[in-house]
Amino acid sequence: MKQLVIDFQKCDAGRNCNHECEMECAVRVFKVDDPKQAALQIKAYEDGGGHAVLCDQCGDCVVVCPTEALKRNKLGVVMIDKKVCVGCYMCIGFCEKEAFMRNSDWLTPHKCTSCGVCVKVCPHGALSIVDVPEPPVRII
């Protein structure tokens, strides 16, 4: 499956960039001019380093979705069908990585779909899309 990964050897958690990845995701994918709505969030630790909130396509949300609005596509990426989603937000509550997000103006939640728009704009080349095996389905 396609998975977005971040290399913190290269990423400096936004200390020397303009969070281009977040902005590109917000503008190009979600059509909003607000990086807080991006499907990946880079957070800097006070004492150096940082971490990224992003979806690793683990599929836990697929298991808990009551309407089968969440399914893997041919590339193994978990996609949301907004027409089927009832906005219950169980996917958000059950995401251990807190990678499922909600915009107050939208009824349906959103997350990273490994589309890769962020990869191209990272000034440090820290982001990449990799192909990894799908993890086994968990009983949640």
């Binding site: 989603c85 009832v86 906005g87 219950c88 937000y89 107050s104 009824l107």
Partner: peptide, 21 residues
């Protein structure tokens, strides 16, 4: 859909629901 009750304050409902999940 998630808003069919047309609640007065959907934000509080969303936050309370996610906290409970």
């Amino acid at each position: 859909a998630g808003d069919m009750n047309h609640p007065a304050d959907p934000e509080t409902i969303a936050k309370t629901g996610i906290k409970y999940h």
